[in-house]
């Protein structure tokens, strides 16, 4: 664990410089969530949905850029060096039938472009690695998080609240609360995902996985199964309802044996 923390510290520092290269305000918001230290309320937490949104955007822009440049350059070269009828005799040494294969020239150019591509890829991945550390370690910083067990059944989702209340098909959570899911399955391999909240994890029989999210807007979010699990797989959906905190408390108190304290403190 020591090394992981150490690595994390190093990455944070690198991340700072890397972020400067990318987008300034993103770096600001990201570092803000950390350096400010103690957070009073999960509404300020940089939720997985925010993390995903930022990274995805950067990747999309850079990916499109690189793709367009490389493909355009490929097409340009193939067109520029097309065979032309009646072209002037040339001095280029062409390969001949039966020769032993050797390299064409241009090794330096090759290494230059390779290095550039490697730098781009490694920087991007280095940067996202710091966010991976964040996503992996953040729930532990929140003692006041809400823990819910999620059990996959063919073909429904069961949610078990801290007070033991169990509901199938609908998960209710309070707004601005860090919700940690503990997933498993009762039969086959499933995968629970809520696309809008950017939370997803495998639900594996005999194993427990975790994932977390923060619902910052009230409303209903669709959840699906993302691992083929049989004939009803396409219909294996659920709804995540993000409620105002008061409304949630009220509802939670009606569930068996539940009270407010138990709801937020596992």
């Amino acid at each position: 664990m020591f090394y992981v923390n150490k690595l994390r510290d190093i990455c944070y520092r690198n991340d700072f410089y890397l972020s400067l290269l990318l987008t300034k305000d993103m770096a600001g918001s990201w570092l803000g969530a950390h350096i400010d230290g103690v957070l009073l309320h999960a509404g300020d937490v940089r939720a997985p949905a925010d993390v995903f949104g930022d990274i995805y955007q950067v990747f999309l822009i850079l990916g499109t850029l690189v793709g367009v440049v490389v493909i355009a350059y490929t097409l340009y070269n193939s067109y520029k060096y097309r065979a032309q009828d009646g072209a002037a005799p040339e001095s280029v040494d062409r390969p001949s039938l039966g020769e032993l294969p050797t390299s064409g020239g241009g090794g330096r150019k090759l290494f230059l472009s390779f290095s550039i591509s490697a730098i781009i890829v490694l920087s991007l991945i280095g940067w996202t690695y710091t966010t991976l550390l964040y996503v992996e370690n953040e729930p532990a910083q929140h003692e006041d998080r809400m823990d819910v067990d999620v059990v996959g059944h063919r073909f429904s989702w069961e949610f078990v609240y801290p007070n033991g209340h169990s509901a199938t098909g609908t998960l209710r959570v309070p707004k601005n609360e860090l919700v940690q899911l503990h997933l498993t399955s009762n039969d086959v391999f499933h995968n629970f995902g809520v696309p809008e909240l950017r939370v997803k994890a495998d639900a594996i029989p005999g194993q427990t996985t975790t994932a977390w999210f923060v619902g910052k807007e009230t409303g209903e979010y669709a959840a699906h199964c993302y691992e083929l699990c049989g004939s009803g797989h396409s219909y294996m959906d659920a709804t995540v309802v993000v409620m105002e905190r008061d409304a949630y408390r009220e509802w939670y108190n009606t569930t068996s044996g539940g009270n407010e304290t138990e709801a937020v403190k596992p």
Binding site: R94, P95, P101, S103, G104, G105, G106, G107, L110
Partner: peptide, 9 residues
């Protein structure tokens, strides 16, 4: 292309 592979090695 009538060229040997660049950086074959």
């Amino acid at each position: 292309a009538g060229r040997r592979l660049v950086g074959r090695k």
